[in-house]
Amino acid sequence: MQAFVKTLTGKTITLEVEPSDTIENVKAKIQDKEGIPPDQQRLIFAGKQLEDGRTLSDYNIQKESTLHLVLR
């Protein structure tokens, strides 16, 4: 499924993900596309910070959801 990641600069990245993907996995995909190390990434969805060990389905993130990427 497709999900979108919006950065603070307003850029939107499109990712191909599965509901079973972990947040860690998603961060690795963002690193592949953008070169941002996962340890600098914080992903926010519905106002919550997403934890590495959880999956997209844990957070009820469905296709075409938009996550927000904040860098630390």
Rank of each mutant, 00 (worst) to 15 (best):
K33T: 08
K6R: 11
T66R: 06
A3P: 01
L50W: 02
T9E: 12
T9Y: 14
G47T: 04
T14L: 12
V26L: 11
F4W: 06
F45K: 03
V70Q: 10
G35H: 06
E51C: 10
A28K: 15
T7D: 06
H68M: 13
P37S: 09
L50K: 00
S65F: 14
L56R: 00
K63F: 08
N60P: 04
F45N: 02
A3W: 05
T22W: 05
G35A: 05
T55P: 05
Q41H: 04
I44D: 04
R54W: 11
A46F: 09
D52M: 05
K48M: 13
T66G: 04
G47F: 05
D58Q: 08
D58R: 02
Y59P: 00
Q41N: 02
G35Y: 03
L43P: 00
L69V: 05
H68D: 07
I61A: 03
V26P: 00
E51Q: 11
D52V: 05
F4N: 05
I13T: 03
K33D: 03
R54E: 05
I13Y: 06
D58K: 03
K27F: 03
I30G: 00
Q2E: 07
K27L: 04
I13N: 01
N25E: 12
Y59F: 04
V17K: 00
A3C: 15
E51F: 07
T22S: 08
K6M: 11
T66A: 06
L43N: 00
A3T: 12
T66Q: 07
E34I: 15
T14S: 10
K11E: 08
M1V: 06
G53M: 09
A28P: 00
G10W: 04
T12S: 06
D21N: 07
A3S: 04
K6I: 14
K11A: 08
V5P: 01
E16V: 12
S57A: 14
Q62Y: 11
L56S: 00
G35I: 02
D39W: 14
Q40A: 10
V17H: 01
A46H: 14
T55D: 03
N60S: 08
M1Q: 04
T9I: 07
N25P: 00
A46P: 01
A3Q: 05
S57L: 11
P19I: 08
R54H: 13
R72T: 13
E64V: 06
G47M: 04
R72F: 11
E24L: 15
V26M: 06
Q62V: 14
V70D: 06
E16D: 11
E64W: 13
P37F: 05
H68C: 12
K29H: 04
G53Q: 11
E51Y: 08
I36E: 02
R54M: 13
Q31A: 13
Q62E: 11
K29C: 03
E64Y: 13
V5Q: 01
V5N: 01
S65M: 10
G35D: 05
D52C: 05
D21V: 03
L8K: 11
G53H: 15
Q2V: 15
K27D: 00
L56E: 00
Q49Y: 14
I36L: 06
L8R: 13
L43F: 03
Q40T: 09
D21Y: 07
D32H: 11
I61E: 02
V5K: 01
T14N: 07
T66P: 06
A46G: 12
Q49C: 13
Y59M: 03
Q41V: 09
L69D: 00
L8N: 12
R54D: 05
T55Q: 07
F45I: 04
F45P: 00
L56F: 04
V17I: 07
L69Q: 02
R42W: 11
L56N: 00
K48W: 08
Q49V: 15
E16G: 05
K6E: 07
I30H: 00
E18I: 11
L69G: 00
R54C: 09
S65K: 07
L15F: 07
T14A: 09
T66S: 06
S65V: 13
E34K: 05
P38Y: 11
K11I: 09
F45G: 02
G10D: 04
K48F: 11
L71D: 06
E18N: 13
L8C: 14
Q2M: 14
D58N: 05
T9H: 13
L67D: 01
Q62M: 12
G53P: 06
H68S: 07
K27Y: 04
E64K: 08
V5F: 05
L43D: 00
L69H: 00
E18V: 13
E18M: 14
L50C: 04
S65W: 06
V5H: 01
D52Y: 04
K27H: 02
S20I: 06
D39T: 10
S65T: 10
R42T: 15
I44G: 03
L71S: 08
Y59E: 02
G35Q: 06
E34H: 08
S20V: 05
V26T: 03
K27P: 00
E51H: 09
T22I: 04
T22K: 08
E51N: 07
V17E: 00
I30R: 01
T55V: 07
T22C: 04
L69P: 00
L56A: 02
T7V: 08
V70I: 13
G10K: 03
